[in-house]
Amino acid sequence: MDLDPSTLNRALPLRDQIYHKIRNLIVVGQLKPGEVINEVAIAEALGVSRTPVREAVKRISDEGLVKILAQTGTYVAPISRADLEEAYVIRRALEMESARRAAAKFTAAASELLEDNMAAHRLAISRGRYATAIQLDDVFHRTIAEICGLPMIWRAVDISKAQMDRGRYLAIPRPGYGEQTIEQHEAIFDALKRHDAEGAARAMEHHLETSFRNTLEVAADLLG
């Protein structure tokens, strides 16, 4: 487990930083389903007291990524089809509306932001930098939420999509999946440029449905 204490900013709340560290380890698969979350070991590795670690783990548990079992221990939650489907339903509803609203506010400056993002995304895929590609994918979706003027949409999506992200890190190395994502981003982008609200929403729906289907296919052996 990669827990470098030098990356902590002691002037900022430790609980939030530790939350992001542990959550990311779960999402990218470094902490696997069923693996024990040892709060004492994490606290020692980071050079902090157990309190911020316990608070961070409780927050992650509230998102369904960790199971805390009395008298037994704390474990990384399994990837379940029900959780994946719930995350997909929430994300589809919010991001279709995000794309719909962004189309009316799409500007030349917004166009440049997404063009630069897609160029960087293509490069990451071509070089096999899959973790970077997923981060750039998130930036694409977050930018659309910011364009529509409702950044809280992305905050809600970011919390709910963690279950899908676990599958995405398994799926993206599959041949063609990264290129497929870029093509679908381009379709969303083209609709936004035309200020076609319904076209953008439909393109977003198709993109998220494909991601969900790919995740189910790749994670089939892990689904609880």
Rank of each mutant, 00 (worst) to 15 (best):
L3V: 04
G176Y: 06
A145S: 15
E55M: 10
D62S: 12
A110P: 03
P78Q: 09
S80P: 03
I22D: 02
N24M: 10
T51M: 11
A87V: 00
I172A: 03
G176Q: 04
A56G: 09
D4K: 12
D221H: 14
L14P: 03
A120K: 13
R101P: 01
E112W: 07
E209T: 11
G224W: 00
Y130K: 11
R15A: 15
D165E: 12
E55W: 03
T132Y: 06
R10L: 15
I37F: 02
G128M: 09
L114G: 05
H121N: 04
E39F: 00
D137L: 08
L94G: 08
I37Y: 01
S80D: 03
L170C: 10
V48N: 02
R155I: 09
R92M: 07
A200T: 08
V76H: 10
L113N: 12
H195F: 06
Q30G: 06
L114A: 05
R122L: 12
H185Q: 12
R213Y: 02
A77H: 06
A99F: 01
Y169M: 11
P175N: 10
V40R: 14
K193V: 02
A11H: 12
E35F: 01
H206F: 02
V218H: 11
P151W: 08
V36W: 01
K193S: 07
A99R: 06
A201G: 09
L8M: 09
A99L: 06
L12G: 00
A109G: 09
P151M: 05
H121D: 04
E115Y: 12
L3E: 03
R127W: 04
D16V: 14
L25G: 07
H20P: 00
E115C: 08
V36M: 12
L46S: 07
I172K: 10
K58Y: 12
E198V: 01
A45C: 02
V28K: 11
A131L: 07
Q184W: 06
L222P: 00
A119S: 11
A56N: 03
G29S: 04
A109R: 15
I172G: 08
E85F: 13
A171K: 05
G73F: 03
R23G: 04
R10K: 14
D2S: 11
I159E: 10
A56C: 05
F106W: 15
I159Y: 01
V53N: 04
T215W: 02
S80N: 02
I153M: 05
H207Q: 10
A103H: 02
I18F: 02
A120F: 09
K32T: 14
I18S: 07
D138K: 13
E209A: 15
D62I: 01
L12D: 07
E209R: 15
D116F: 12
V53S: 08
R155W: 00
